[in-house]
Design a binder for these strands. Sequence first.
RNA 1: CGGGGUGUAGCGUAGCCCGGUAUCGCGCCACAUUUGGGAUGUGGAGGUCGUAGGUUCGAAUCCUGCCACCCCGACCA
Length: 492
Amino acid sequence: MSKEITSRQQDYSQWYNDLVLKGELADYSAVRGCMVIKPYGFALWENMRDVLDRKFKDTGHVNAYFPLLVPKSLFEAEEKNAEGFAKECAVVTHYRLKTDPEKHGKLIVDPEARLEEELIIRPTSEAIIWNTYKGWIQSYRDLPLLINQWANVMRWEMRTRLFLRTAEFLWQEGHTAHATSEEAVAETVQMLDVYADFVEQYMALPVIKGVKTESERFAGAVDTYCIEALMQDGKALQAGTSHFLGQNFAKAFDVKFSDKNNKLDYVWATSWGVSTRLIGALVMAHSDDDGLILPPKIAPLQVVIVPIYKGDEQRAIIKEVMSPVVKMLKELGISVKYDDADNSRPGWKFAEHEKKGVPVRIAVGARDLENNVVEVARRDTKEKMSVSMDGIAYYVKTLLDEIQLNMFEKARIYRDEHITKVNTWDEFVNTLETKAGFVSAHWDGTAETEAAIKEKTKATIRCIPLNNEQESGKCILTGKPSTQRVLFAQAY
RNA sequence: CGGGGUGUAGCGUAGCCCGGUAUCGCGCCACAUUUGGGAUGUGGAGGUCGUAGGUUCGAAUCCUGCCACCCCGACCA
């Protein structure tokens, strides 16, 4: 059916690109590794952002904004953080251009305008934020400090992919400061729960909550908590992270507070973030060979109505009959487009809206009007139903909820079927090669073994699941004793 | 950054080896007939051939640099 979209089977990567480009989520730009987020894709991001922002505020956070540029001296203050990001930083060295004396109409960097101190385009904002917090925190009364920022960041990645890994991306980053370690850990876990709830309830994407191993940890963190999702090709994708930073940044930026007993101590910190990468996850997890399939709760457009008419008179009559339906849907909080544009035919519109993943389509023609029905088609299962006009808005509202649940269930079943417990190295390798997905296996707890497994199979430890069942076993590679299974997978 | 590939109208392409001013399809515009799964006919518009140089009487074509994109690696959210 689809003339434009490469099938998953044929070329999974190309399928993904086709969906993003032809689903009008984003476009390539003239800048290396940077994409243009198109209106439809940005509307999706706005919906996601709005839900998350509400959740952050409901858990006591406020928004602020910090500078894009970070002086190098601040950036290097927290050693591990600086080291971790150093090789992917864009650096501002000059503040002026001038006309090229040799080539008319061209500009060159003015060598006279070199900055005394280079400025780093933030790959993440801990440095500039903690430098600021130093001035804001003196007493336990100033704590906790619970701030989030919506921003763009830049990481000069070697190889970029639309939404999944772009040089510049949009995200939110929460940065909090607390009086005790316990409180900071509780915050870290709370925000992980916020993310998990959002991704599962709104994006209809089941996740596994866990903790990263040392080698996968955020640079500068004591612990990195994460949510991991599974894509349709069996690869895992890190959907969000929440870091317990201990006192590392407080020490690096000298942020101390007096407690109730007038004792001076460094504050405890967290940071947490999700990015436009989530859109990539959404696309890869749910869509099919006909195009995007978007979950109703965050779809830019939930319902499209396509009238089918012969001549202007019928077109007017159908519009007349359907306008109360449109009104009613809007009153129920449903976004709806009445697509009676005369420049394309119904079949074209059907295909177009399927490609863009609109959850519900209503088609209505003269034949339907006679019978007081409409044709309702759902994007997730592609089922078509003839439904009475009476109470149609409520029917659609219920259907949207059902689609949301169905999408989650389908993804959950797929995910659960792709968590395989293995006990030997052969089973492990075989599972990765033939089935993919998460592989649950014993590991001896060392970074060396983890690296060796990555070297041999490309699989990494995605996480040690929270509330993990404790059981004794033997490491699949070394045979050394282990107390719990961890989740391996090949990842994006 | 290493290996492989690509860049010609909005999209997909032919032409390149062997230099002589760009082919076809879709889309777009106008009109007509159409409209329940990507309509049909007739007429028409649209191109600094990624970009900057070089060779040449003449470059989409040959040479060099650069840029971007795709795939595979290393790196990474």
